[in-house]
Design a protein around this nucleic acid. Sequence first.
DNA 1: GATGAATGAGCTTTCATTCAT
DNA 2: GATGAATGAAAGCTCATTCAT
Lengths: 210, 210, 210, 210
Amino acid sequence: MARQKKINEKKSDDKRQRILVGAIKVFSTKGFHGSKVSDIAREAGVADGTIYLYFKNKDDILIQLFDESLKVLLNDMRKALSEENDPLKKIRVFIRMHLDSVEKYQSLAEVMQLELRQSSKFMKEHTPKRFTEYLNIISDIIRRGQETEIIRKDMHPAMMKRAIFGAMDEIALGWVLSKQRKRRTYELAECADKLADIFLAGLTLPKQGS
Amino acid sequence: MARQKKINEKKSDDKRQRILVGAIKVFSTKGFHGSKVSDIAREAGVADGTIYLYFKNKDDILIQLFDESLKVLLNDMRKALSEENDPLKKIRVFIRMHLDSVEKYQSLAEVMQLELRQSSKFMKEHTPKRFTEYLNIISDIIRRGQETEIIRKDMHPAMMKRAIFGAMDEIALGWVLSKQRKRRTYELAECADKLADIFLAGLTLPKQGS
Amino acid sequence: MARQKKINEKKSDDKRQRILVGAIKVFSTKGFHGSKVSDIAREAGVADGTIYLYFKNKDDILIQLFDESLKVLLNDMRKALSEENDPLKKIRVFIRMHLDSVEKYQSLAEVMQLELRQSSKFMKEHTPKRFTEYLNIISDIIRRGQETEIIRKDMHPAMMKRAIFGAMDEIALGWVLSKQRKRRTYELAECADKLADIFLAGLTLPKQGS
Amino acid sequence: MARQKKINEKKSDDKRQRILVGAIKVFSTKGFHGSKVSDIAREAGVADGTIYLYFKNKDDILIQLFDESLKVLLNDMRKALSEENDPLKKIRVFIRMHLDSVEKYQSLAEVMQLELRQSSKFMKEHTPKRFTEYLNIISDIIRRGQETEIIRKDMHPAMMKRAIFGAMDEIALGWVLSKQRKRRTYELAECADKLADIFLAGLTLPKQGS
DNA sequence: GATGAATGAGCTTTCATTCAT
DNA sequence: GATGAATGAAAGCTCATTCAT
């Protein structure tokens, strides 16, 4: 019976997966509001109703898509960070890895950048736990750095996590849009290092020129 | 002068204004997609149809709201910046002023942060000229600073404008959300200075420890 | 004062006329339902509201247009018919004149053929008196012809007026449509005579071959 | 056989049929423009949205209703005509059958007579193939008759098909309207024969008295 | 579990008509 | 009489979601 169940799980998981993959394609092509549930169903090769066996509603597809992606990213990120001890180096790794992922999963990134916020309930009611976790990796690093006197203590970690994420995110948005407009002015890999330079300089040195 | 102004103020402009003000209130309460055109009409004290004398459609209300607000902000910003010569100081002024505005026009900021991107056509087809202008203020300052050897030359202005704006924007978003959840961890005024510290340190000093 | 009034009447009649002429143009271009009252107003060079000083509503424009045209046609028709005594010749004159008018006032005829029936109240509630009058010219001729033993007595005049009018009307419709499609298979002038041949043969001879 | 039929009858076809029947009733009562889609849905016992599974839009209901009816009429007509060889007799059969159908399907005829042309796209863009076919039956008969020297060769078949159809159609209209006004002056069955007399006399004899 | 036909609430937008000026 | 800004009722259509099979 256990075996039976496992087989079924696999089957269903396959459907769930196909729906998510279909959703990425459809959302990135038509946008969230422009996509019909039946579009996703067709793309995934399932019936409309089937989607509701795996997802609560249309919003939920986007949310789970986001969550799922973050799960992978969180894993990768934690593994990569565990190989580094220096808080400053960790920050550099974080930034580099985040922007690498954007480049690697372009369609997905487009959806995240452009469509995610269109899910009405997303930002307000449902800031997903995992997103908070993801941001908190940054604040944790900073807090650790402050404890070991490596990072300026007057920088509020909750503020810094947003500053760093916001900078990356907006750069990623610019990159995604510039791709759609076929005019690209900067490459993400290069940005990652420069951006890390900026923040590391700012976080370590209490001196400023103005 | 008051009289002069009154003459210039067409009756129609009054209605248009009332609709925009009503829209801010309604959007910030119910969200863009949750707001019906008739809600805005009621709030503004006009008939549904009247809205379509001044706006092409519901999206257009949001877009014009954004545009209008940016017009004011751009003006104020330019005036403030013209009193400063040092590129570094200009950046500090920019950041401070931006976050001050968020604090000053909370409802409007909420709409900008949470609802603007939900207008399907906004980010993709209609990145408004004025928004580009606004961002370009930053890149112009940086370019000037690079010419006068005050700012690191290896920092791409197009990237930096997004990094700075993104950091501010995400901090503002966190602030807006924390207000809605009634848990506030940082104040914007303080953030502005810290954030400026970070970027100025990063933009001036090519040295970094890792 | 009488003179004063006459001048005013002229002025107003001019406006009324301009509205009617504008309506012909607009209706024949966009169709009745596709035409906005404001389109007609613009075409006529008057304000929207002005139209309601001369017409009860949009339907009324079409109805009066129809009525007005019929008034002219009725006049012309009666004059032409009065010069003829023979009922059979009168019928020939009637058919010829009707189709001539269609050719002469093409835009108007298009409106009559294609748009008139779209006025919801037209066919049902408001078969205009003058239209009845117009049709009755035919039945009167027939009745007269029957009294003078020239026309078969077993042909119901009420039926014949519709048969003759329907034949003419459908031929006109075909002609109007063929013009719009730029493929014309027959000319109206020729039709008129052939059609008269048909009906005169049928009305005079009780014999038939099958 | 009954069972066979039941199997062939898809559930969907049943719904489609109910909508069409409901539409006849609603259109003939309230007129095309006076009917709301939801009226038809209620009459058919389906949801509003269901209608859009079977019809493109409101216009399409009318068009398909027309087309469907013509399909039946065309079939019956062709069968009836195939039993007749003489072109003149065929014409008589055609007229009789057409007017019989009007009498038999009164509600449907009312819709055809009064509402069909109100579908904005009907007459202009979408003269249905089948209607052309229907009219062409007449012109074909005439052409055949001309080839066998039974019918006058100077009568343009394209004109005659419209003349005959127009006469029938207008007589039918008068009959439908007279029913609504409860004053009936002629019966269709009688008209059919008289009308055939007229046209046959006119088509066979080139002699006329005026 | 899977299906997809059916549902029906919901909303933007149009435009004939009015009426204060 | 003339204007045209303002009105607001009215309805077609979409599409996320359900549920009988």
